[in-house]
Computed example of a mutant assay.
Amino acid sequence: MKNIVLFVFVFFLSSIVTAQSLVGVWELDSGEYIDGDGQLVDYSGLGFKSLKIISNSHFSFTSMKGDKFWASGSGTYKVKDGKYTEKLKFNSFGEESGSEFVFDVKIENQYWHNSRWKDGVRVEYEVWRRVE
């Protein structure tokens, strides 16, 4: 019985995402978002590629659509209660400095899953793979 309780406890702890567990370099593995027309767009159909670098307190990403620059952003982030929140400082896509994006977050092995919701609708889903 002790072994089962220990296993459940260790499994539970391993699923808790902390800022420290995100530190590293991540490559976009897959994703989708709802566009301005309300249509679901799969990143793979766009030839979408992206790298995200996470330090202890900051993030930065650069995204490409095929071989052309698509977007970049950087700023600070926090992780709390299963939520990963990015607060933009600089970006190339017209958001005001200080804008926040809140994601439900989960890490499974080397994969980081993010889901962003608006008014009960999932508007973005990303899977990142740890590369460093």
Rank of each mutant, 00 (worst) to 15 (best):
D104A: 05
S99Y: 12
L46Y: 00
K83C: 08
D35P: 05
Q110D: 15
S21T: 09
G24L: 05
W70T: 00
V102W: 04
K49L: 00
S60V: 09
I53L: 13
K118E: 14
G66H: 00
R130C: 07
V17G: 03
K49T: 00
D37W: 04
V10L: 15
A71Q: 08
G94Y: 01
E32P: 03
I34W: 03
S63M: 06
V79E: 00
K78M: 10
M64P: 01
K106C: 11
F12P: 00
F48G: 00
F93D: 11
E96G: 03
S97R: 09
Q20K: 12
Y43S: 04
K52S: 13
R130Y: 10
L28T: 01
E124I: 05
I16E: 04
S50W: 03
V123M: 06
S99P: 02
N56E: 14
H113S: 13
S55E: 10
G47F: 00
L51S: 03
V131N: 02
E132V: 09
G24H: 06
E86D: 13
V5K: 15
Q20M: 04
E108H: 11
W26A: 05
E95I: 06
Y43C: 01
G75Y: 06
K78A: 08
D29S: 15
L22F: 08
V131Y: 05
V5W: 15
Q20V: 06
K87P: 00
G120D: 10
R116A: 11
I107W: 02
E96L: 11
F103H: 13
L40C: 06
S57L: 01
E108Y: 12
Y111G: 03
V5C: 11
G45P: 00
S21I: 01
S72R: 07
K89F: 13
S92C: 09
F101C: 05
D81G: 12
G24Y: 07
G73Q: 06
L40A: 10
G36T: 06
F93A: 09
K80N: 10
R122Q: 15
G47I: 00
F11R: 02
S63V: 07
V127N: 01
G94K: 00
N56Y: 07
E27R: 09
G120S: 08
Q20F: 02
Y111I: 04
G98Q: 02
Y111F: 14
F7H: 14
S97A: 14
